[in-house]
Design a protein around this nucleic acid. Structure first.
Length: 317
DNA sequence: TGCCAGGCGGGGT
DNA sequence: ACCCCGCATGGC
């Protein structure tokens, strides 16, 4: 199947925005090639967007589908939310400029926004990060796309994968083994069932809170909060794992049990965003290396890194 | 080789 | 409210 352009439009940007950093962060090669970003918009009847820079303050966005007509307004709104081009981070930058863990990276990263994703995909990301290294987690997710996702061809782009749907997982549980998720596979199945039974629904992703998501067995506080950050831009309750807890305790000289409280005091309603950006600042190094980076004051990402980092993932997977 | 990691739940106190 | 352990898998 080949997806073809239905409509092309220009998006005006009114906030600080760095398209390349935003498109690169935590992305795969089948969604970003260094210049152009592919966004999956619908997985049942495949619809995607292709976005690139048009000028300093403008992006060009194309919507592609197999049908001749799609709900253009609905998908344009979705593209804007995914890109975060209407998200004003001025207050966030004020804290960033002064914070001792963050301030050295503002010059490099200003304008980066999180790309949002579906609640389902956000939960998959969180589950793959459970008790695993950054590299292992993203390799697991990549395998899920390659083994269980839907392979489609996109005009003037080439091959891409759409994320596997909950039903794709439930009807191919045997293939999930090949994705090497270990015991996390059970949690993926539980989440897939929650969507299949309408216990969770993509339509309500902006209404959920942590307590709703942790009802699924295997989804705890960290995964739930990360999913709300990635799917709904809900930053009030930060996802804090062992890695970040330790870094906070070292940087701000507080006991680990006060890490969350310390983080929220610093970041206020932006805590969840700064949790994710911390992993970008430290190139998602393993804990001991991250602490060494902090000690040396190298608290900024190495953009030209040959290693697999959040900003170079798309070159590797 | 034999640890152990960007969690979690279940069992103890 | 706290410990503490086991858990699949990959990486070193």
């Amino acid at each position: 199947m080949v997806l073809q352009t239905i409509v092309t439009t220009i998006l005006d940007i009114k906030v600080d925005y760095d398209f390349k950093l935003t498109a690169a962060a935590y992305n795969f090669s089948w969604y970003f090639n260094g210049k152009e970003l592919l966004i999956p918009l619908s997985c049942e009847e495949p619809v995607v967007a292709l976005v690139k820079e048009e000028s300093e303050k403008q992006l060009q966005a194309r919507i592609l589908s197999m049908k001749k007509e799609v709900d253009v307004d609905k998908y344009l709104a979705k593209i804007k939310f995914v890109l975060g081009i209407e998200e004003d981070l001025k207050e966030f930058y004020n804290i960033w400029a002064k914070d001792k863990l963050f301030r050295k990276s503002l010059g490099i990263l200003k304008g980066i926004h999180l790309r949002s994703t579906s609640l389902w995909n956000a939960l998959l990301i969180g589950i793959c990060q459970q008790n695993a290294s950054f590299k292992q987690g993203w390799k697991m997710l990549a395998m899920m796309y390659k083994i269980l996702g839907k392979k489609v061809t996109v005009e003037r782009w080439g091959m891409t994968y759409l994320p596997p749907s909950p039903r794709d997982i439930l009807s191919n549980i045997n293939l999930l083994k090949a994705c090497r998720l270990g015991y996390r596979a059970g949690t993926v199945v539980n989440v897939a069932k929650a969507f299949a039974n309408n216990v969770l629904s993509e339509d309500k992703s902006s209404e959920y809170v942590e307590e709703d998501l942790v009802k699924v067995k295997g989804v705890g506080s960290y995964t739930a909060r990360l999913a709300l950050v990635l799917a709904a831009r809900k930053y009030e309750r930060p996802p804090i794992d062992r890695w970040l807890r330790k870094i906070i305790s070292v940087v701000y000289k507080v006991p680990e049990r006060l890490a969350e409280e310390t983080w929220v005091k610093i970041w206020g309603k932006w805590g969840g965003l700064s949790s994710v950006i911390t992993t970008i600042i430290l190139d998602a190094e393993t804990l001991s290396n991250a602490l060494a980076r902090v000690a040396k004051g190298r608290t900024y990402p190495i953009l030209e890194s040959k290693e697999m980092t959040p900003l170079t993932l798309w070159k590797h997977v």
